[in-house]
Design a protein around this nucleic acid. Structure first.
Lengths: 207, 207
DNA sequence: TAGTTTGTGGTACAGCCGTGCTAGGACGCG
DNA sequence: CGCGTCCTAGCACGGCTGTACCACAAACTA
């Protein structure tokens, strides 16, 4: 064993092991021992990097949040129109297997948040960030002129936000009914409802 | 102790004790012993009515679902217009303390469902019922002529359903940000978006 | 080479978990 | 009265939990 281990790397592998256990067996199976076994080390070795279980969970939750932010932020900054907004939310919603896992982890943490003040705080932060995405998305639609002028922007942002959270929850709870196709469709349904019809791509628009 | 206890009543008090523990301390604190203590009896006495923990959870989940159905069904059958639909969903959403508790219980069960096949089955059933409510609600809006003709009914139902689930989840996760007022407002926002403007109650409508 | 730091494994402890077992009290029926 | 059924309480068991403690190997420092 080398004298100096790469702490960041070790912590990352442990967090990833926790993700795997969480996604596979649910939060109830996440214990110091199961995660350590998944990471291929002894519980004591793990405790060297995460002294308590709370540390482990808080760090894992923070990592999850930051990973999501890192993936979504560039898409959000690049978005200029409805298509860009759709790309943002397709990245946040469980539309492929990796996303599904990540959203399940997210929901498990959300459910766990009421347990510990630290997790509560992180969850609070996540909520603020997610709501901000919806507001910015609607601003983008406004700037591109695609938002229906009859729709109040605040209302659109609130609805979009709740709709997306609902889809995430439903996909985790009833995966058979809420597959990727249905998620994409529902998102499009909603955007259709708040956007004006596109400026005539092919063929005649409506009179 | 009387020779014959009222089984139904005993089971009901136990289920209610479980609800209280669940709402107060979260699912992690729900054990045979804590629920028995909350119900004021010994764990063994409780085990007479619910042989295993799984029985207890499955029964509690079924009771929760049926209680909700019993409360919502008459409202749904009585609903004839948008106001009626709003009443239905205000009864389903956590707009008062009792509803909040019930929705927290519901979410905890949803998260727990992946644990046991029985709970999975009950959750599946709940999902079907909830989706049915959204479909019927949109049919009512259609029948009353309030649904905007430009909005596809299927899309409206899907969005309404996901929106409501999202509000429920958000209210449980971020209670400070999603209070009853915000829930009512968001529901109204969405219905405004899919309904035609009402036939001029007071003052001039839009030109 | 000697010593200190850094990382790791094994073991142990108290506490909670679900559940099985056993004994006995309270009542209805004969 | 006495028997049998219904209900309740206590206890014990194996297993899992988080965490503390201790011994030890590897590598850098002097």
């Amino acid at each position: 064993m080398p004298r100096r281990a790469d702490h960041a790397a070790r912590r990352a592998t442990i967090v990833e092991a926790l993700w795997r256990v969480l996604a596979r067996h649910g939060i109830a199976e996440v214990s110091v021992r199961t995660v350590a076994a998944e990471a291929g080390m002894s519980p004591t070795a793990m405790r060297y990097y995460f002294p308590t279980r709370d540390d482990l969970l808080a760090t894992a939750m923070t990592h999850t949040l930051e990973r999501g932010t890192a993936r979504v932020r560039p898409l959000l900054e690049a978005a200029r129109d409805r298509a860009g907004v759709e790309r943002v939310y397709l990245e946040m919603l469980p539309t492929d297997e990796a996303q599904r896992t990540e959203q399940e982890v997210y929901l498990a943490f959300a459910g766990l948040a009421r347990t510990s003040p630290r997790l509560q705080e992180i969850s609070e932060d996540a909520g603020v960030r997610i709501r901000r995405v919806a507001r910015v998305a609607v601003e983008i639609l406004q700037a591109s002129g695609e938002l229906d002028p009859g729709v109040p922007p605040g209302a659109a942002a609130r609805c979009l936000d709740s709709l997306v959270q609902g889809l995430t929850f439903q996909s985790a709870t009833w995966p058979a009914a809420f597959d990727a196709e249905r998620i994409r469709r529902t998102l499009r349904d909603f955007l259709d409802g708040i956007c004006v019809s596109p400026p005539d791509r092919s063929g005649p628009g409506r009179p």
